[in-house]
Design a binder for these strands. Structure first.
Length: 747
DNA sequence: GGGGGAACTTAGCAGCAATTAT
DNA sequence: ATAATTGCTGCTAAGTTCCCCC
């Protein structure tokens, strides 16, 4: 009930234009304080100072929210980000619940890893068989474990030895893992265009078939019970499952859904069911709600069974053999059918995303490998052996007509090598960037309009890290833009604003319909050119009407091999991190907490530059208040401790040195004060960090834009354990960088 | 040079798992 | 031991770029 209400209200609140960006607290940048960053510091600073413009609205949003607690979701529901939040996706993926799995097993981390290891070594020789053998082994071991535990006691309390043992095991595991890691970065690269020499896999994993509704759950039309055909019922269920969400109330969504639903109906159904408003999915909806609830309330054992079943699927389908190395596949599961939900105001929202059959799937693997076997009674669309591409399987998706691929995990050689290369290109830009900047400044005076436009666009891409902005087909996707596709309506020129000259105000929806809002002081050449570009144009006309991304990239690649628009984003992100880390560092920074705050701030500067936003966590206000409460308690404790210390000192003085115990008491109290101070500091740092991070997503830049070698070197220099900034997945992905980076690495 | 397809990277969010607080 | 909170993973949409064909 609660969330539903929120959704409804926020829907109405659409025009309040409460916006993510506007509410950002950019105070971390005040601390960043660097003019040294040629483009980025300037940018971030301007972000900071220019948010004022919409502050009034911000305040309005804030106040309102205070009035209605638990409504943090409302805030991000401005015109620009409506759909981002509260979009709960219920998927068929949950279906495996129904898969009967008799073997109740427990997977202790130890047995798992043991098996993994064995699996690996056997795997080297033969890929197909070990998978099965191993599954059996896992079962054996695990059953034993479970029995043993049961007989010993119901509460598996760990003794000190056991804890120690576990710790050692972990270390050993880590070492083993390290040993068997494929150090591809030490190998010679393949000839251009060749992605692999041998590739073997089991094909994609298909979602379970649709399970018809039980006899006691019905669909009603005009109040009459209607038994739907299987196909129509399945699609009805997709809709029923989403009933809680705002978008089932949206006109476009409903229309698209209804059109597609009717397509799968029988002739009779189609004749009868003419109006979505007269459809009652209530019982179906309730049933699936109950199912979700049931799943939540499952016992530990049941959950374990489920987990085990999933693990089995991963073991069988989740890996491939690529040039004698076992590699994890990123997305080995075929996407289940459902209703398409694009982001933003997507014209295709609600359309039926069809179930993919093996007959739709192209397999790519080595000729001499054991070819994946399609599900019984089915065949593949095609089996090909193309080692100039990295995908293992592909299919065409029906909503947008795009091709979907099954590819390797980010920690694989194929992805890692590409990533490495990306950063190397970006580093190369470092040596060219001065010349390029000089040239585009020069080009702004060019006689030919397309060169001027190119220059100004490049200025934005470089200074603001905008995306290239390809043309998009109207009516096919949400209306979003990047640099080259900016329209006149997306910028406003201010000769003077907030005491600054030549300010360009940007306001547009970018990728994922995330709003980009920024007021940027620009050089007058840019300002004048923009004026010219906008002359005699309608708001909906393209700002850079003589420029396309292709032209821009062609020009860029002539300036430096491999240079494209997106390289600037990578370059500026990475160089900003490096510079910020340098500038934010100071001597008094001795605790890890402070160092990490510094790192996060540097990271945050990049995220702001790249406009990586997130919806503020739903529980943000609450958790912030909690933290503040904790800080307050700590402060009281500290005050108390100080008083006690004073008293102790006094006592010691009064009674002279006669009693050595008193001196000890003083020391103790001193230590207590110190401890209190440290804890308080840690909490305060945490609070600052969290507040600054409210609606900024650090993950995207960390994963895609920041050369990991900068971070690795920083950790080494600062003596910060790498685990503090990269989790396991990230360390895996960046294994190449972690291995090869020296303490003095410079981007 | 432009349209369209193919391949691959980038993106934010939901849901669950792990961790920490109570 | 349980509840709250945080962190991570999986998912898949939405970009960019390259390349081919005309």
């Amino acid at each position: 009930m609660g969330p539903e209400k929120d959704v409804a209200e926020s829907g109405k609140a659409k025009h309040k234009a409460s916006q993510l960006n506007k509410r950002r607290n950019d105070n971390e940048l005040a601390g960043a304080g660097g003019d040294a960053i040629q483009s980025t510091a300037e940018t971030t600073k301007s972000t900071e100072t220019t948010h004022n413009g919409k502050d009034m609205k911000v305040k309005a949003a804030k106040t309102e929210k205070l009035d209605s607690p638990s409504n943090s979701s409302e805030l991000d529901d401005g015109h620009f980000t409506t759909k981002k939040k509260g979009v709960k996706r219920k998927r068929i993926k949950d279906e495996p619940v129904d898969i009967p799995t008799s073997d109740a097993q427990k997977t202790s981390s130890s047995t798992k890893s043991k098996n993994k290891k064995k699996q690996h070594s056997v795997e080297e020789e033969n890929h197909a068989q070990p998978l099965k053998k191993n599954a059996e082994k896992i079962r054996e071991t695990d059953v034993k474990t479970e029995e043993g535990e049961k007989t010993v006691s119901k509460k598996p309390k760990k003794t000190k030895e056991e804890i120690k043992e576990a710790r050692e095991l972990k270390i050993r595991q880590k070492e083993e893992e390290e040993q068997k890691r494929w150090r591809w970065w030490e190998e010679e690269k393949y000839e251009a265009g060749v992605k692999w020499r041998f590739l073997e896999h089991k094909g994609p994993y298909f979602p379970p078939d649709y399970q018809p509704l039980p006899d006691n759950v019905h669909f009603y039309y005009k109040g009459k019970r209607v038994k739907l055909s299987l196909a129509a019922e399945e699609v009805a269920v997709f809709f029923a499952q989403m009933l809680d969400h705002e978008y089932t109330t949206k006109k476009v969504f409903r229309e698209n859904f209804f059109t597609d639903w009717r397509k799968v109906m029988t002739h009779e159904e189609r004749l009868f069911i003419q109006d979505l408003d007269k459809c009652d999915f209530g019982e179906i909806h309730a049933m699936y709600q109950a199912k979700v609830e049931e799943k939540k309330n499952m016992s530990k054992e049941e959950k374990l069974v489920l987990k085990e079943a999933n693990q089995k699927i991963v073991d069988e389908f989740g890996y491939c053999l690529l040039d004698h190395h076992r590699e994890r596949i990123g997305n080995f599961k075929i996407e289940p059918p459902g209703l398409f939900r694009g982001r933003g105001e997507h014209p295709k929202q609600g359309m039926l995303k069809k179930r993919i059959q093996p007959e739709d799937v192209i397999i790519n693997c080595s000729k001499e490998s054991s070819i994946p076997v399609p599900p019984a009674g089915h065949h593949w669309k095609e089996v090909r052996h193309d080692n100039s591409v990295t995908w293992l399987a592909s299919w065409t998706e029906n909503v947008q007509g795009g091709i979907k691929y099954v590819m390797l995990n980010a920690n694989s050689k194929l992805k890692g090598e590409k990533d490495w290369e990306k950063f190397e290109v970006a580093r190369k830009l470092k040596t060219h960037v001065d010349g390029i900047r000089k040239q585009y400044l020069e080009d702004m005076k060019a006689r030919e309009m397309h060169i001027r436009q190119r220059a100004v666009a490049l200025y934005f891409i470089d200074k603001l890290a905008l995306r290239a902005g390809n043309e998009k087909e109207e009516g096919e996707t949400a209306d979003t833009v990047g640099c080259c596709s900016l329209r006149v309506e997306h910028i406003t020129l201010h000769k003077q604003l907030d005491g600054k000259d030549c300010v360009v105000e940007f306001d547009f929806l970018g990728k994922d319909s995330i709003r980009y809002y920024n007021k940027v002081p620009v050089i007058s050449k840019v300002f004048k050119n923009l004026k010219i570009f906008m002359e005699n144009k309608d708001p909906v006309d393209e700002l850079f009407d003589r420029l396309t991304t292709t032209m821009l990239n062609k020009h860029l690649s002539s300036l430096m091999p491999g240079l494209t628009a997106k390289v600037f984003r990578t370059y500026n992100a990475s160089i900003t991190l490096q510079q910020q880390l340098q500038e934010l560092a100071n001597e008094s920074m001795d605790s890890d907490a402070e160092k990490l705050l510094c790192y996060n701030r540097a990271n945050r500067a990049v995220a702001i530059l790249c406009n990586h936003q997130r919806a503020p966590p739903k529980t943000f206000e609450q958790s912030m208040a909690n933290l503040q409460a904790k800080i307050d308690t700590r402060k009281e404790q500290l005050a108390l401790a100080k008083v006690e210390l004073k008293q102790a000192k006094k006592d010691a003085k009064e009674k002279g040195n006669s009693d050595p115990k008193l001196q000890i008491v003083v020391e103790k109290k001193e230590a207590a004060v110190k401890r209190c101070k440290e804890r308080l500091l840690k909490l305060e740092v945490q609070a600052t960090d969290r507040e600054e991070n409210k609606q900024i997503a650090l993950g995207t830049s960390k994963l895609n834009y920041l050369d990991p070698r900068i971070s690795v070197a920083w950790c080494k220099r600062m003596g910060v354990p790498l685990e503090k900034i990269y989790n396991k997945t990230q360390r895996d992905k960046f294994a190449w960088a972690i291995d090869m980076t020296d303490i003095d690495f410079e981007f």
